[in-house]
């Protein structure tokens, strides 16, 4: 079982390395969105500080969603998804490996670039730390939940827009607690631990339950 996980993970990482533009596009999408926001809302320092958590998180939501469209699409088009569905290895492990690879390629870079957003929005070191921590806990949930949407919309015309309609409402809790933790950390004497614990709990729940839904959706899509 672990061999399968490792093989699929390695496969998706190799594929991404041979076609780097896909990863870089998501990465720069995130950077560009957070960079143009101040141009629209103004450069007032206090306001930017206040808006930073929400903007960073919404940019992360959108970036993760854009990347999700390709999660299963190319495997669906060339028939390798059929081969995965028919392997007698547990489909859930395969799904987890693919989602993990996807997160390593699109979620983790967002966590690492978060300090840049901190600079642009005048956040303190501690606040940047909290933001990175929430993104570290939250972006895997986005990938796990989003995988359901990606599987449901596989091979459909305009699948990308459809994913956003299906999945964005479901991202609401992650957005509230992810951005909420950073906002709270700006107040003196605040306690962000509760937010982080809750995000952690969501992550565990998502790890256990979403792969089932994704696997079921993949089987339906390949009929």
């Amino acid at each position: 079982m672990f061999t399968v996980f490792k093989t699929i993970l390695g496969r998706d990482l190799t594929l991404a390395m041979r076609r780097k533009t896909d990863i870089l596009t998501t990465f720069f999408f995130f950077v560009i969105v957070i960079s143009i926001f101040p141009l629209g809302v103004g450069f007032d320092k206090a306001m930017l500080q206040k808006m930073a958590p929400g903007i960073a998180w919404i940019a992360a939501l959108l970036a993760s969603m854009i990347a999700l469209e390709r999660l299963f699409a190319s495997d669906y088009e060339d028939g390798t998804l059929e081969q995965m569905l028919l392997s007698h290895q547990p489909l859930i492990i395969i799904v987890l490996a693919k989602v993990f690879a996807h997160w390593l390629l699109t979620g983790l870079p967002l966590v690492l670039i978060a300090p840049l957003a901190g600079l642009q929005y005048h956040l303190s070191g501690d606040e940047v730390g909290i933001m990175m921590l929430t993104l570290l806990l939250g972006t895997p949930i986005l990938s796990l939940l989003g995988a359901i949407g990606a599987a449901l919309t596989l091979g459909l015309r305009g699948g990308g827009v459809l994913i956003s309609v299906l999945i964005l409402p479901l991202y609401v809790p992650i957005l509230i607690y992810g951005a909420g933790a950073v906002s709270t950390s700006m107040e003196a004497g605040s306690n962000v631990q509760a937010y982080l614990l809750l995000l952690g709990a969501f992550l565990i729940l998502a790890l256990f339950f979403t792969p089932w839904a994704t696997a079921a959706a993949l089987r339906i899509a390949s009929e």
């Binding site: 060339d78 081969q83 028919l86």
Partner: peptide, 17 residues
């Protein structure tokens, strides 16, 4: 599925591999 081999319309190959 252990007893099964399937080859469909698609070759099931990744072009980049």
């Amino acid at each position: 599925r252990q007893n099964l081999v399937w080859l469909g319309h698609y070759n099931g190959l990744k072009g980049d591999l």
